[in-house]
């Protein structure tokens, strides 16, 4: 048994339970948006989501058994990817729209008011339509999200101490549990063995697109902050500074 010591089915039900609740922006949006008002709504929502993300991460079986340093590094490296994958999942049944929250839905064209954000919206919409094409299942979605979290820092740090080495080995075993769980979820779709292997490849290849969009988004947010288009503060500021 891997680090989690539980069956793939049990692992998946645990990470589905860990899913954060729907989050609402709770602002009266004045349209048409200005660059400042759209960026302010986007960052307000991101800050709220980040708080729930940390609570979510702690519910991923085995995460809190990792060293605190690893927990911080993992979240620091992947937070925007996780936010973006959640956005794609919420948007998967709404072609051409980005469902940031039930009370904050944007059409692609509405991004025209923010310099440089249309390209990012287009990449997000393209990845979302790929997930739609693949008919992404909720069980697969939660596995991909856990994979992004646990895989985010595994190649950038080399353990120096025995504690770090132990934590890294735990992390690698945890990643195996997630891969096992994703393979199990795919095996439930009634596909041939070869189709299952291809699907696993299609889904994991999308992770590199998500990392790419996240990097673009990080650069864009840093630019918006540097130009004082939007005030970034609290947890979002901490995570942005750590990532740039």
């Amino acid at each position: 048994a891997h680090q989690s010591g539980m069956s793939p089915e049990e692992f998946i039900s645990r990470i589905i339970e860990a899913e954060p609740p729907d989050i609402y922006l709770m602002e009266d949006l004045k349209k048409p948006f200005t660059e400042a008002s759209m960026m302010m709504s986007l960052t307000n929502l991101a800050d709220k989501e980040l708080v729930l993300m940390i609570s979510w991460a702690k519910k991923i079986p085995g995460f809190v058994e990792l060293s605190l340093v690893d927990q911080i590094h993992l979240l620091k490296c992947c937070w925007l990817e996780i936010l973006m994958l959640g956005l794609m999942w919420r948007s998967v049944d709404h072609p051409g729209k980005l469902i940031f929250s039930p009370d904050f839905k944007l059409n692609r064209e509405e991004g025209v008011c923010v310099e440089g954000i249309m390209d990012i919206f287009d990449m997000l919409l393209a990845a979302t339509s790929r997930f739609r094409e693949l008919k992404l299942q909720r069980e697969e979605y939660v596995c991909l999200k856990a994979m992004i979290l646990l895989n985010s820092n595994v190649v950038t740090s080399s353990p120096q101490t025995a504690e770090e080495l132990e934590s890294r080995n735990k992390l690698l075993r945890l990643l195996d549990s997630v891969i096992d769980a994703l393979v199990w979820a795919i095996s439930k779709l009634g596909l041939s063995t070869q189709e299952q292997t291809l699907r696993l490849g299609h889904l994991t290849m999308l992770l590199s697109h998500i990392r790419h969009v996240s990097n673009k988004g990080m650069d864009h947010l840093s630019t918006m902050k540097r130009k004082n288009v939007v005030l970034v503060y609290d947890l979002l500021l901490e995570m942005l500074d750590a990532s740039t």
Binding site: P20, P21, V51, L52, I54, S55, K58, L68, V69, Q71, I72, L75, K76, D234, L235, E238, M239, D241, A242
Partner: peptide, 24 residues
């Protein structure tokens, strides 16, 4: 220490047993 300094809020939320959802 520098890591915890740089990630004060993240560090606190990771250590905090009360989940933010309950706090909210």
């Amino acid at each position: 220490t520098s890591l915890k300094e740089k990630h004060k809020i993240l560090h606190q939320l990771l250590q905090n047993s009360t989940s933010p959802v309950d706090l909210a």
